[in-house]
Each structure stands twice: as C-alpha cells, then as structure tokens.
Computed example of a mutant assay.
Amino acid sequence: MAEIQDHAAPSIRGLLRPPRFVTIEKFEELTGYTPDATRSKIKRGDWLEGVLYIKAPDGRILMDIEGYEWWVLNGAAGSAQLQKAASR
C-alpha cells in the first residue's frame, strides 16, 4: 500500500511552525488590534499591501505576522509613512 504524504506545515523537532499569514480575526487574538482597527489602518493606507498584509487568491485579506513584527520594531518604516517620506 502506498505511503500517505503529510503536507502539513514544516515542523522543527515535531513542533508545528506557526503560520506567517493569518486572518484578521486571528490577528486580533495575536496582537490585540481589533478587526475594525486593522481594516481602518489598511483602508487609510497606514499598512501597505505586501508589507503588512496580502490578498489571498480568493481575495481574502491575510495579515503578515513577519511584516507586523518588523513594523513593531521599526515603526513607520513598514507603513505608508515610509512611502510618503521616500517620495519627497
């Protein structure tokens, strides 16, 4: 009988790697930013697509945890403020 392949997220010593991209609702659980606050930051352009969030192939917004952590550590550099400063 053929062996079944496990296509789960890669693991390190048996521990699952947390997902890089999460729904806005899961993002709230992880960061405390409410879905309304997150959507407002996206709508205003404070958080850039491809930096702090992506759109999945089905159009759903997924927050980039690595991008968020970088933004927390570097402030405006992960937001539209960087883009405005660079255009001057």
Rank of each mutant, 00 (worst) to 15 (best):
M1R: 12
A2I: 13
Q5V: 15
Q5D: 10
Q5L: 15
Q5W: 09
H7C: 06
A8R: 14
A9L: 13
P10M: 07
S11V: 08
L16C: 04
L16M: 11
R17A: 12
P18M: 05
P19W: 02
R20E: 08
V22T: 07
E25N: 04
E25Y: 03
E25P: 00
L30K: 04
T31N: 01
G32A: 02
T34H: 01
P35K: 02
A37I: 05
T38M: 03
K41N: 11
I42V: 09
K43Q: 08
G45C: 03
G45Q: 02
D46Y: 13
W47F: 12
W47R: 07
E49H: 04
E49G: 03
V51K: 12
L52N: 15
L52A: 10
L52T: 13
K55R: 15
A56M: 10
A56Y: 07
P57F: 12
G59S: 08
R60F: 01
I61M: 05
L62A: 00
M63V: 14
D64F: 05
I65L: 09
E66C: 07
E66I: 08
G67M: 05
G67H: 06
W71T: 15
L73M: 14
L73R: 15
L73Y: 09
L73T: 11
N74V: 07
A76H: 11
A76R: 12
Q81R: 13
L82C: 11
L82N: 13
Q83L: 14
A85Q: 15
A85L: 15
A85H: 13
A86Y: 08
